[in-house]
Write a protein that binds this DNA or RNA. Structure first.
Length: 440
RNA sequence: GUGUCUGUAGCUCAAUGGCAGAGCACCUGACUGUGGAUCAGGGGGUUGUGGGUUCGAGCCCCAUCAGACACCCCA
């Protein structure tokens, strides 16, 4: 027999982990739908051609293979390119602007590391068919509400614009080729510090004077308005960069109007982001509890859908990393600590009482409780209590001959060790009240 | 993709190139119409896998698979 083993970078999620993952997914779904986003699902496989030519260097990470008919296929690399395909394919059926969300797995053939897997889940939200900065602001609002709903105590969404980066490169006298090295260098600011970035800039052929100018702009921090006006001074004469600043100013104004706390976002000229399809504003949310990388990232990509459709469809969106959210929440103790789905364990006193126990069980299920029974009518109560305890089920019911005669049920709380007799007719309401206060 | 390290029971780890072990967990029993605690017993291993060196390999060498870390990049 072959040794049971996972494929590199692919993980199993056992029940306890799945319960937290499902909580995350459910919470995100509720928040997304509260903002009117609609669900979309697409296959994990696409024609390789669909995914190629959209990602730049990252394409080497795409899983490619042939099916039995020799078709060249690929596993999706993210949920954004499939969205672009869908928008082009169902153009007549979708009323734009369209807010959609998608939660599912994507695949990248990277070397696995902490918070980085070959199969990973993302929760995407996108607003398709709107170039308004209000759409950009709405995406930031949704992510802020979502992380708050999950209970994150501190996080900051960094906001930048592709044309601010472009302006910084141009102001330093760099062509587009040299610029990509600059973006990569400044994106590492938080990691390698000012001196590290300067070193890397010089190494990629930037002059000392240019490096100083770049660093001056990249290091700008503080109130969004201050950063924007400082950048405005330094990027004077660069039409595209100034337009980007106007755009960012509008986004910030909308965020203020929406009531998003100024602590939750920051203008960050250093934010570069990798995916080559971004054209406008870019976002990334960081948490001090997760120094290794971002919890989510996104931005505006006004040209991607045009690669599939005959027209430009401006779109802005972002993707949560479910696996990273999960890891951080586990470390911080956020979310419910559920061990199992069952809330109540109904014992079977003996074969004679089995029917009564099964009937009680169904009744409780009908009342909306999650209930399991023992499967062995001959097992002693001790064994059944132990099963409930090990499963982490808090409430155990016993219905022996004496209880049946009195039309009562014994309810034991394994958390406190206390037990009491409850009239049979009141068991469901009693349990529902208990479960309501103890759950979560 | 590059580099470094790791892999022994379900888990955490021992074992100088010389008989593969401990603690916890698990199973059975003792005790009450009842879990945790205590006591008594028990089951568990092709040392990730495949080769090689050696009288002899968990230990040394090669390959491979998986994991961790740092680059690279990113969710």
């Amino acid at each position: 027999m072959q040794k049971p083993q996972n494929i590199k970078g692919m993980r199993d999620h056992l029940p306890q982990a799945m319960l937290l993952r499902q909580y995350i997914i459910n919470t995100l779904t509720v928040v997304f739908e509260r903002h009117g986003f609609e669900p979309l699902a697409t296959p994990v496989m696409e024609y390789a051609e669909t995914l190629e030519g959209k990602l730049g260097d990252d394409e080497k990470l795409i899983y490619r293979f042939e099916d039995h008919g020799g078709r060249k296929l690929a596993l999706r690399y993210d949920q954004t390119v499939p969205l672009a395909r869908v928008v082009a394919q169902y153009a007549g059926q979708l009323a734009l602007p369209w807010r959609r969300y998608a939660i599912g797995p994507s695949y990248r053939g990277e070397r696995p590391a902490r918070g980085r897997y070959r199969e990973f889940w993302q929760a995407d939200v996108d607003i398709v068919g709107s170039a308004s900065p209000l759409a950009d602001a709405e995406i930031v609002l949704v992510l802020t509400d979502a992380l708050a709903a999950l209970g994150f105590p501190s996080f900051t969404t960094l906001i930048n614009h592709r044309q601010v980066l472009g302006g910084i490169a141009r102001a330093s006298g760099l062509d587009d080729v040299a610029a990509s090295g600059v973006y990569r260098a400044i994106d590492k600011l938080d990691k390698i510090g000012t001196d590290g970035v300067r070193e890397e800039l010089l190494r990629s052929g930037v002059t000392d004077a240019a490096a100083t100018r770049i660093l001056e702009m990249v290091l700008l921090e503080g109130q969004a308005e201050t950063v924007l006006s400082e950048l405005g001074h330094r990027l004077q004469g660069d039409e595209r960069a100034l337009a980007a600043l106007t755009n960012l100013r509008a986004i910030v104004a909308h965020l203020q109007a929406m009531g998003v706390s100024p602590e939750r976002y920051a203008l960050a000229p250093r934010l570069a982001r990798g995916l080559s399809y971004y054209t406008g504003a870019v976002f990334e949310t960081i948490s001090s509890h997760w120094p290794e990388g971002s919890l989510l990232g996104g931005g505006r990509y006004d040209e991607l859908i045009g690669l599939f459709a005959n027209r430009q469809v401006p779109t802005v969106g972002l993707a949560f990393g479910i696996d990273r959210l999960h890891d951080v929440m586990e470390e911080l103790g956020l979310g419910p600590r559920l061990q199992t789905t069952a809330q109540v364990f109904v014992t079977i006193f003996s074969p004679e009482q089995m029917a009564a126990s099964l009937q009680l069980t169904q009744e409780l299920r009908g009342a909306g409780l999650n209930v399991i029974t023992a499967l062995d009518a001959d097992a002693g109560l001790g064994k059944q209590f132990k099963e409930a305890d090990r499963k982490g089920i808090r409430y155990v019911l016993v219905q022996g001959p004496d209880d049946l005669a009195r039309d009562e049920v014994v309810l034991k709380d394994l958390g406190s060790g206390e037990q009491r007799s409850v009239p049979r007719a009141e068991v469901a309401t009693t349990l529902r009240a208990l479960v309501k206060t103890t759950r979560r």
